[in-house]
Each structure stands twice: as C-alpha cells, then as structure tokens.
Design a protein around this nucleic acid. Structure first.
Length: 560
RNA sequence: UGGGGCGUCGCCAAGUUGGCAAGGCAACGGGUUUUGAUCCCGUCAUUCGUAGGUUCGAGUCCUACCGCCCCAGCCA
C-alpha cells in the first residue's frame, strides 16, 4: 500500500545499471560479510536487504562470508545465529557459506608475494613504538628502522612467525606504502599479526592472522564480487583496498562503494553496547524482545516481511541519518493489520456478572478472525454469565468523550451482545472489584432499538478463557539518542518501564491452539506473539507493538 | 591547523544534459466503522546549510564561508 513493493532506486543501483549497460559487468555478485562476534541487529538487516536484494532483483548472486580474522572475539554460536537470522529474513546465499579463514593459505601466499616484490616487510617495533612512528592526523609518520630489511630476511622472519617461533606482538608484517600519506590507513598498514589463538574454523592451523584491510579485498576478488558494499567509515580504507589488489597477482578487482549505516532513535546499534547489555544482564539475552537484534525482533513478533519493507522504506544514501523508530513500527503494524488474526485478551481482568444470563449456559459465538479477510475464517468465542472486561474500560466517573463502560451505561461486547452496567462492588479501599450487568438479548449482530451503546469493548469468558502472562514491552531507552551524551553512560538511559508483566491476563481459547511465534491482534490492545518459552501449562505472549491510539494521545495532551 | 565525506519539510528520501521541489513516516483537520484500530478524504518546503556569482532561468554550475560525521586498533 504505502510502502514500496519493490526497492526504489538509489545511487548503488544507478552504478550497477551503468556497469551493466556499459558491459563492465554482465552479472551482479555481492556479499554480506559479518564478523561472527555478536548477533545481527537492525543495522545489519539494512545491509542484508541491500546486498541480497540486489542479487535477487538483478538475478545475480550474494554470498554469505564470515569475516573471521580475529579469533579472539569470535565464536561458533555467532556463526550459527547469523545464518539462522539471514534465512529467517528470507534470504539464501549462493552456494556454501564462505569464510575468510577458508582463504588463509591464499592470503598468506599473497603476503609472501608482496614481500618478494619489496612491498611488505616484517617490523619488529612494539605496538607502542608503531603508534609513535605512525605520526598524527596533522604530522607525517616516520620510517621504521626495520623498513628496509632485505627480502630474504623478511621471508625468513615471516616464515618463522607462521611457524610459531615468536610471541604475540614480537613482529608484524606491514605493507610498504607511504609513511607520509595524509591518509593514515596508507602509512604502512599492518597486514599480519601473531595470535596464538584457537580459531573456530581453522583450529590451531594458524598462529598468524591477516588484518581486515588485507583480507577483505582478497576475499572479494577470490569470490568474483562485482560490487563490494560497506558503510561510510570504510571510505578511507578504499585506497588500501585498491592498493592490495593492484599489487598482487589476482585478475579480479571488485569496486568498493560505501553507504550510510542505519541509526535508529531510542535505540543503540553498536555490537559492543548490545553485548554489554547482554553480559551485564540488563536484558535476558541477545534475543530479548527489547533488543534491536534480528533475533529480538523475531521474538517480539516482527515478521521478516515487515523488516524487509522497513529497510526498503528508509532508502540507501550517503548522508548520516537517524531513522525514527515510528517507521519500523509503521512497517510491522501495516503487515500485522493485514495478516494477523484477531482475538480478545483482557490484561487487567474485572469480573462482570450478567444477572439475566443463566448460570452454566455457554453460547459459542462465531466471530470473524479478521474484519476484512474473510479467508481467515471465523473463531469460536464462548459467552457465559461471568465474563472479564479490562479494568481500564470502566470508569465510575467518566471524562468527557468516554466511549467505554460506566454506571448505568450501555456497552457493546465486541462480537457479542450489548449490556448495561447495573451495579458495582467495591472493596474497603473504595476500589471497584466487580460489576453486575444485564444483557440485551435482541442485540447479537443487531443494533439495539431505542437506545445506543456507548462504545465497544473487548471481553473474555471467566471460566472459558485461558490464563496467560502478557509481557508489555516498550522502548529500551527513554531518550532519543542514548549514546549521544559523551559525559553519560548509555546505561543510565535504560527505560525502567521497558517491560511490564501482566501476570493475571486472560485470553480467549482460540489463541491457545496456535504454535509458538504465532501473531495476533488483540483487539483494542495491539499486536502480540506467542513467546517460544510458552508451554501447554503456561501461555506467554509478547506485545509486539500497540495499536495507534488517538484517544490516549488526546488524553495525554491535557497533561497527565 | 592533515585527509575523507555529508548538509532538500520534525524524521527518512527522490531530484542524473540547469527549466520552475516526488513519495513515505510523523503531525493536524474531517468522513466511515460492533477494534477510540483499519480504511477514506484533506492540510503540511514561494524553498533546497549560508553568502555572493554565472544564466532568460540554479537544489542542480562557480566561489567563499558555516555546520555535522569518520580516520592516529597488532578490531572489523
């Protein structure tokens, strides 16, 4: 409807169109290259949709390649979660999963080639010295005293690094480029370092690991990538990407293009910070429904389709930007409004006894599962003498404009009869704890004669409903830019009300028949999904997002 | 004070030989409605960071400013 069915044009598609038109390429090959050091988040979703989406639309290919050159931070659990998340989003990579580590031998051989050409050398300065020799943003660097080591010595040292003859930090391999370059990435960048670490893919086969800047262009070239897409912060690395490919014996030379990474307000999208939230238990895990991870959104009830549509709707450009989470919420509401079956769930039960309904009588009402989708069928909703309505739908002293129940007022029970409140029962503190009402038998599917109902509210049979726990999620952070204040830790902005548990909720029985992850609209409340932790004995539902609420908005205006 | 980028409506974002500012989100009115939902209709940039210049005509070209982001990991 409002969101585009197919990805709109952007500068990358224009480049591809031109490359295809000029004959530079006959096919598009992209890749999604995550480092397996955390779960994928919404920012990765943008990259995934871009790279895989391009492959789909141009009938090309997109590889999934793990950029696993730093065993210290990586883990097998992450390589598994990443594959699961990419597939859940609806994409399939071309052929087998690739690993940069799978190219370690070739990468090593290219390093040897650079040494032989006099374009790389083993440096024996320590980390601190290397930093000093690198210079600053405004001052050029200086040559390392080891820069002019003879080729034979470099070859020997590098072989011994590989053989495990040195400790971490003793020697590194550097590309010999230009210590005076205004681009710091070109000041003899380190391309190999010693790491006596077990690697999740290669085990203990290697104790030297190539750096990203050396690994990435080679991996892209080996795979025949045509368009290597990455985020803006790598723009300064592009000259190095090209330098590597220009100086080794490899025919393919992919081109790198950069786009702006996704920022979302009220959210953090930094793997380091997300990992901190998990490690310090501010959330229950990477898949906590409040996390902006793919796994979190999945558990929260987001659909793959909604995330793909969202990614299309935000576009791809080179301008730093922060997207309003309202865009994401719009995408999931749009999907679920169209596709989610409806049901009724009472979050704060208030018992109503319908005095003119016989005790023990159960009438099974046939209610459409969706107001517009007849194909979704009907559900059976039992109506009995005792029902529950939401405590917030009754007001002893209703404000102006109130369209719910009040003493003596008439209300339509959604999908059922119109009833009139006849009495209320209060506890010692003056709280209303139960209501009595009378139903109008001539109002099932028909408007009442001679009077009008004040509104429509949802309800559930007291003994024919299913008890459940409903988790009401709200944004994890209470400020738009949680890491925008350098003097304050982002954890200070965690929303203390990001999770509210409604443990006494009751849901209509139709819901209990659905499997985990099923999504519903609980009428007048919002969209909800069955949490995977649910069992027959304990049903748990997660609120994905609320319905738009013009009444709540109006109430909020008057100050509250 | 080095280098690389970016600045079009509150938030994204089209705008490709200079020709007279798309669209979405949000917001705000109104209509329909057994969800205060959905849906429908309408309003919402004489202006494109600023200032000059070229031109019949500039968001698009030129100049100079201003602002914001990234880079000094043996991370990616």
């Amino acid at each position: 409807m409002s969101l585009p069915e197919h990805a709109p044009s952007n500068f990358i598609r224009q480049i591809i169109d031109a490359d295809l038109a000029s004959g530079k390429h006959s096919q598009v090959v992209t890749r999604f290259p995550p480092e397996p050091n955390g779960y994928l988040h919404i920012g990765h979703a943008k990259s995934i949709c871009l790279n895989f989406g391009l492959a789909v639309d141009y009938q090309g290919a997109c590889n999934l390649r793990f950029d696993d050159t730093n065993p210290e931070k990586e883990d097998l659990d992450y390589v598994q979660s990443i594959q699961r998340d990419v597939q859940w989003l609806g994409f399939q990579w071309a052929g087998e999963v690739r690993y940069a580590s799978g190219y370690f031998q070739q990468i090593h051989d290219f390093a040897v080639e650079l040494i032989e050409k006099g374009l790389a050398y083993v440096d024996s300065l320590n980390a601190e010295q290397i930093r000093e020799y690198r210079g600053t943003l405004t001052e050029p660097g200086r040559h390392s005293p080891y820069r002019d080591r003879p080729v034979a010595e470099n070859l020997d040292l590098f072989a011994r690094m590989k053989a495990g003859g040195f400790a971490e930090g003793e020697h590194v391999l550097r590309a010999k480029i230009d210590m005076a370059s205004p681009n710091i990435n070109m000041r003899d960048p380190i391309i190999y370092r010693v790491r006596h670490q077990h690697h999740h893919q290669t085990g203990d086969a290697w104790c030297i690991y190539p750096m990203y800047d050396f690994t990435h262009p080679i991996s892209d070239a080996i795979e025949g990538i045509t368009h290597s897409l990455c985020t803006l912060e790598f723009e300064d690395h592009r000259p190095l990407y090209d330098w590597v490919l220009d100086n080794i014996s490899i025919a393919c030379h992919p081109r790198q293009y950069e786009f702006a990474r996704l920022n979302l307000n009220y959210t953090v999208t930094s793997k380091r910070k997300l990992k901190q939230l998990v490690d310090e238990k501010h959330v229950t895990g990477w898949d906590d429904p409040r996390m902006p991870t793919i796994a979190g959104f999945r558990r929260r009830g987001y659909t793959p389709q909604s995330i793909r549509r969202f990614c299309e709707s935000i576009g791809v450009s080179r301008a730093d930007s922060t997207v309003d989470v309202a865009m994401l919420e719009h995408a999931i509401r749009e999907d679920l409004d169209e596709n989610a079956p409806r049901a009724m769930c009472v979050l704060r039960p208030l018992k109503v006894t319908i005095e003119n309904w016989p005790a023990g009588k159960v009438e099974v009402l046939q209610v459409p599962a969706h107001p517009k989708r007849e194909d979704l069928g009907v559900r059976e909703v039992p109506f009995t003498r005792e029902i529950y309505i939401d405590a917030e739908d009754f007001s002893e002293d209703p404000p102006k404009g109130w369209k719910r129940l009040y003493p003596e007022g008439h209300i339509r029970l959604r999908g059922g009869y119109v009833m009139q409140c006849t009495a209320m029962e209060k506890d010692a503190a003056g709280q209303v704890i139960a209501l009595t009402a009378r139903y109008d038998e001539k109002t099932l599917g028909v408007n009442p004669e001679g009077y009008k109902a004040n509104g429509v509210i949802h309800w559930v049979s007291a003994d024919q409903s299913v008890p459940c726990e409903v988790r009401l999620y709200d944004r994890l952070f209470s400020v738009e830019n949680p890491d925008g204040d350098k003097s304050r830790d982002f954890l200070e902005f965690i929303n203390p009300e990001s999770l509210q548990v409604m443990s006494a909720a009751r849901v209509e029985p139709s819901v209990a028949a659905y499997p985990a992850e099923s999504r519903f609209q609980f009428e007048r409340e919002g969209y909800f999904a069955i949490d995977p932790s649910s069992t027959k004995g304990k049903l748990v539902l997660n609120r994905t997002v609320t319905l738009r609420d013009s009444w709540g908005k109006e109430q909020g205006k008057g100050g509250k």
